[in-house]
Write a protein that binds this DNA or RNA. Structure first.
Length: 255
DNA sequence: GAAAATGTTATCAT
DNA sequence: TATGATAACATTTT
């Protein structure tokens, strides 16, 4: 699950805010008794971290690759990792990692400005952080949760396709305007993802992820694991430009 | 039916 | 002690 999906969950679970946990159950090892009778005070997301803020602690849920949830219904056979029952409904979470964080001050723990879905998102800070990693491949940069919190592999592939950038381009070699475009589109596509996911049309809007043919060029895509975080990249070598350092710059000159 | 994938963190080893 | 490798989680799609 990528960042935008958690924002959708936050909206779907909003009716539970202000309600008391009547029953907490599930396969998770976390101390479920701890939150019984606590009121759900707030729901927040930091990229792929989902935060349920209670009276004196917070539950952090990560849905990883296969996690999902059912609100006011449950999976026909699977056992939930964590179920919360309130007076107005139940919330079942599956295949996720759940953990209790002591305290409720998430502002002290999370930097919201790095989250592409957050209103506090700061392109300027992103740019500054990127400048500190001139040798990083753009493919790794977009997946780096400290740089583009909430971006996942689908968003990565679609962003590079949109801005016509080869995923193995190097941060330090990007022309300033191209860097601007990368930062801008990381957030912009994430909101498209959010809207399409909500209307159930996300997959049909994919132009690169899992695709075989580039519709701009009518040529086959390259499918390759790129970067140090070797996730699948789908790209067109004809229209997606590879930005690499010139031989005599970017690194110490060897003579 | 095997393999890979919308991903990260805890733990172990060096 | 710091860094890096490995295990763990566990379902759907190709």
């Amino acid at each position: 699950m990528e960042g935008p999906s958690l924002v959708i969950l936050k909206e779907e679970a909003a009716p539970f805010i202000g309600k008391k946990v009547l029953v907490a159950s599930g396969a998770s090892k976390l101390d479920k008794d701890r939150i019984i009778n606590q009121t759900l005070r707030d729901l927040k997301t930091w990229g792929k971290h989902f935060l349920m803020v209670f009276d004196d602690c917070t539950i952090r849920i990560h849905y990883l690759m296969f996690g999902n949830y059912y609100i006011n219904s449950r999976h026909p056979e699977k056992i939930p990792k964590l179920t919360l029952e309130f007076e107005n409904g139940e919330w079942n979470n599956y295949n996720c990692a759940a953990k209790i964080i002591e305290g409720t001050d998430m502002d002290a723990l999370y930097d919201w400005s790095s989250d592409v879905m957050n209103e506090a998102w700061s392109p300027a800070k992103a740019r500054k952080k990127l400048a500190a990693h001139p040798h990083m491949l753009v493919s790794d940069a977009l997946l780096d949760q400290q740089l583009f919190t909430g971006v996942g592999n689908i968003i990565k592939n679609e962003v590079f396709y949109r801005i016509k950038m080869h995923p193995e381009s190097v941060i330090g070699a990007l022309p300033p305007a191209k860097l601007t475009q990368l930062i801008k589109e990381a957030r912009n596509y994430s909101f498209d993802f959010y809207n399409w996911k909500k209307e159930g049309t996300l997959r049909k809007h994919w132009l690169a992820h899992t695709k075989k043919i580039c519709i701009r060029c009518n040529l086959p895509f390259t499918k390759k694991h790129t970067g140090l975080n070797p996730r699948r990249s789908f790209f067109c070598t004809n229209c997606q430009v590879l930005y690499t350092p010139k031989d005599n710059e970017g690194t110490a000159v060897n003579k």
